[in-house]
Each structure stands twice: as structure tokens, then as C-alpha cells.
Design a protein around this nucleic acid. Structure first.
Lengths: 204, 204
DNA sequence: AAAAATACTGAATGTATGTACAGTATAATA
DNA sequence: TATTATACTGTACATACATTCAGTATTTTT
């Protein structure tokens, strides 16, 4: 890929901004309007130069037939951290807890989400959540009974069903008969809701 | 957002696949070519319906002026079909079996995969596979004992553990004590392995 | 010093494309 | 039962657009 000139960079930026704004590429006239050129041929020659240098491809004859040659498609998709073992006392999203990141579209899980949590143990197995599964977590404290929540109790992070019994009593319920409910009295114990599960990802 | 019809869904999918492939939206004629319509007005009316229902926006007068209204501009990934109910006797990937598509990166599941299969029933619940989960399926006949396979028996598609007992006997084992093993004698019965599970996606 | 690339204006042209109009037919809705 | 939405074919046409040709001027490369 050869060197790009500053004017060609302007044209390339213009194309990408236009694409993001409208969802389709600009015409020669559009580029002229955006960049103040007075002849469509100004855009044309820049496009041909960009094509020659490999930055874009042009479908001959097709209107708006410009596509940007972005091999590293960091557009749209985002990098989401995978949280593994959470060190006691450290904030969940602290860097040392991030095992790696996964690139996936923003709204891959319907309500949007913030990170993946790697599941340890089988306390939620009857809800189809197995060891090493990745739970898509949306950071929120707005949880309803029956939601699968990511909760923090004494620096211990746990995944359970949420069940508010009364204004002061919350039960965290596993989905595995070998485990017992955790009953929390909010007056005497700290319960911090990190978020709730909005999806699950498993890779064999 | 109102209900979408199956034909309108086909058109919407066509637009997104075209976008992914070329980088710009299709013309009416392109859509006709892809879907077998013979009049550009067929595409036009579908586009207007999709616009009315809010799935797309159309820039009046602009060629290829279609933009898809899903908030996530998930460029870079691929569109993977979601296979729901498989009609008896029809090939799994036949168009009428495609419920919709999901955009996700190619290498989202490590060994690559070909489509998502929507799970019916709870026969694999102890393996953490619940109803309506989406199994990432890689088309292959190269399966080992213990693999979770997608198998076809008498036009019925099923997901089970694979276990070859001998050269002629294969057992398909559920992960749910309420279900029983399926024993197949390859000499007298047809067993077609569609592929194997390489991952799982669940959306709450 | 000549050639090639860059950076434009301006006009012209063929065609790619959106879009309206005229039909036909079936299913869903009021 | 009338009406609207869906699902098409087919023709036609104005215009949106790509693209070529003709210039001018500056900078970079050979």
C-alpha cells in the first residue's frame, strides 16, 4: 500500500464519514459538495488514485460503487473484555482481571452488554450455564426477580437467580440442587449487584 | 416495529448480504437478480413496505440509497443463517428453513462454523443446551466419540452426543435422564451426520 | 529538462437507476 | 362484503451518476 497524500486522505475520510452517516457510499458530486470541489472530475481523479494505491475498490459502472478496503474491520464491532478469576477486593473490570477480549457486534445481545464473565463451578447448571461458559453481562442495578444476576458478596463474585423476598431480604438462588440459597439481610450485609446476564456464549 | 413477512425478511437479508459482500447497498435490479424477481417494481414495493415498517430508510432519488436501521452497524462480520424448524425432507440449509441471520465475526467459534441451529426440546439440558439456544454448527462428517453432533434420522434432525460402539453400531446419547439412547445399526438404518456443535449462543 | 503524478475547473454523454403507471392475483382485515 | 396489504409482471421515463475529454497549473520523480 503506497503513500497517501493529504488531499487523498481527506477524500478517504469523507467517504468513511459519509458511509457511517448515510449507510451508503457517496457519489462524485457528494464528495465535491463535502470537500468544496467544483468539478466531479476532481473527485473522480482522487478516487482513481485511491483505487490505484489500494485504499478503495470501485465497481465499474455502478453508482456509489465505492468500497473501502478495510482489512482490519474494527468498524462497528467492539472489543469486549473477558473477566476470569476476580481477585478479591479488586474492581471486577480492573485490568488484571481481563483475560482477553472478544470482538463482537455492539448489540449482539439484545439490550447491549458490557463484558463477558467466565463462569466457575456448576451452581447454575440447571439454567444451562456450565463451567467456562461466558456470560454476557450488562452493568445495571435494575434487576427483577428471576433475573440471573452477577452479585458481589464479601469480595466474592457469584452468579445466581435474583429473588427479592422483602424490602430487606434478598435471596440468591442457584440452579443446582447441590447448592443452597444464599439469604441476605440488607441491613446487616452488603450486597452489590454488578449487573445481570443478557446472554451466553460457549465455545467448544 | 411492525411484523415482517417472510418475503420482506428475504429482501432485508438480501440487502444485508449484498452490503457485506460489496460494501454498498443493492439496486432494485440487484435485488431482483438475487431473489429471482422479474420486475424492479417487485423489489420497489418490498422496499417501501420495509421502510414503512421501520426496518430500512430510503433516501429519495438517490441510487442505492438504502440504509438498514439496525442500530449496530456491524460491519466486518459475516451473516450466518439461523435454522429453525427443519421441514421434513428438505435440506437443512434450504432457504425456507432460514429464520433470519446473525452477524458475527468469522472466527467467533474457534474452528469456524457454518450456521446456527435453534434448539427444540430439552434432550441435551445436562450438557447446558436449553430450548431456543442457538448451536453453532460446523458442517462436517468427521466426528469423534463424545462430540455433540447434529444428525438426521428419517428426515428428523436431532442433536445428541455421538458414540460409535462398533463399525456398524452408533449410539446417539441425550444429556437428560428422561430421554433414552438412540441405537442405530448402520446396516439397516440411515444415519446422516450434518455436522457438529462448536459453540453455543443464548440470548435472554 | 522531460515525464509523471497531483490537483483542480468545466462541459458533455451514455447509462444505471429510481420511480410512477398499468395490470393480475391472493390473503388478511374491517 | 368491501378494503387494504401482500406479491408479483411489464413498460416507460426522467434524472442521478459514472466517466470521458479538454484544459490549466504546481509539484515530484526520473
Amino acid at each position: 500500500m503506497k503513500e497517501i497524500t493529504s488531499q487523498q486522505q481527506r477524500v478517504l475520510d469523507c467517504i468513511q464519514i459519509y458511509l457511517k452517516k448515510t449507510g451508503f457510499p457517496p457519489t462524485r458530486a457528494d464528495i465535491c459538495r463535502e470537500l468544496g470541489f467544483k468539478s466531479p472530475n476532481s473527485a473522480e481523479t482522487h478516487l482513481r488514485a485511491l483505487e490505484k494505491k489500494g485504499f478503495i475498490s470501485i465497481e465499474s459502472g455502478a453508482s456509489r460503487g465505492i468500497s473501502v478496503n478495510n482489512q482490519n474491520n474494527s468498524f462497528g464491532g467492539d472489543e469486549y473484555p473477558v473477566i476470569g478469576l476476580v481477585a478479591a477486593g479488586s474492581p471486577t473490570l480492573a485490568e488484571e482481571n481481563i483475560e482477553r477480549t472478544i470482538n463482537c457486534p455492539k448489540s449482539f445481545f439484545e439490550s447491549g452488554f458490557d463484558y463477558f464473565l467466565k463462569v466457575r463451578g456448576l451452581s447454575m447448571k440447571d439454567a444451562g450455564i456450565m463451567e467456562d461458559d461466558l456470560i454476557a453481562v450488562k452493568k445495571t442495578t435494575d434487576v427483577k426477580n428471576g433475573d440471573i444476576v452477577i452479585a458481589r458478596l464479601d469480595d466474592e463474585v457469584t452468579v445466581k437467580f435474583f429473588n427479592r423476598k422483602s424490602s430487606n431480604i434478598v435471596e440468591l438462588e442457584p440452579a443446582n440442587e447441590d447448592f443452597e440459597n444464599i439469604v441476605i439481610n440488607l441491613e446487616s450485609e452488603q450486597l452489590h449487584i454488578e449487573g445481570k446476564s443478557v446472554g451466553l456464549l460457549r465455545r467448544n
